[in-house]
């Protein structure tokens, strides 16, 4: 796992409403990571795609733009169905999982 430095929140953890959203997102992350790992083991590309799509749309609004970016890159890779991209999919997936893990553990 390559531990990346978590990017600073784009939300304000001192604002109660922002803190509530950040807390919710961080609480949800471990389950999402599990789903991603399981899907990767089963080579279930549809599930990976769906989750990446959801994280791309949601993570920035919860104050985690870097997770959003990683998810977007993974989604882009999945749209390209060339065999050569499988290695890259794995790399993007690992990057996303690593990033999620770092936030989930860091909290």
């Amino acid at each position: 796992m390559h531990a990346q430095d978590p990017a600073p929140f784009s939300l304000d953890p001192n604002n109660p409403e922002d803190a509530e959203l950040i807390g919710f997102f961080v609480d949800e992350l471990p389950a999402r990571v599990d789903t991603l790992r399981t899907a990767a083991e089963n080579e279930d590309l549809d599930s990976i795609k769906r989750l990446a799509h959801q994280l791309k749309g949601a993570a920035p609004s919860y104050g985690f733009p870097t997770i959003g970016q990683a998810a977007a890159q993974l989604e882009d890779c999945l749209k390209d169905t060339g065999i050569n991209s499988l290695v890259q999919i794995k790399a993007e997936l690992d990057a996303l999982i690593g990033l999620c893990d770092s936030y989930a553990k860091g909290s």
């Binding site: 409403e17 509530e20 959203l21 919710f24 997102f25 949800e28 959801q54 749309g57 949601a58």
Partner: peptide, 15 residues
């Protein structure tokens, strides 16, 4: 929406 994240976000932000 099929994403729990979107529901929670909008429920909170549209309160």
């Amino acid at each position: 929406d099929d994403s729990k994240f979107v529901h929670r976000l909008l429920v909170t932000r549209l309160r």
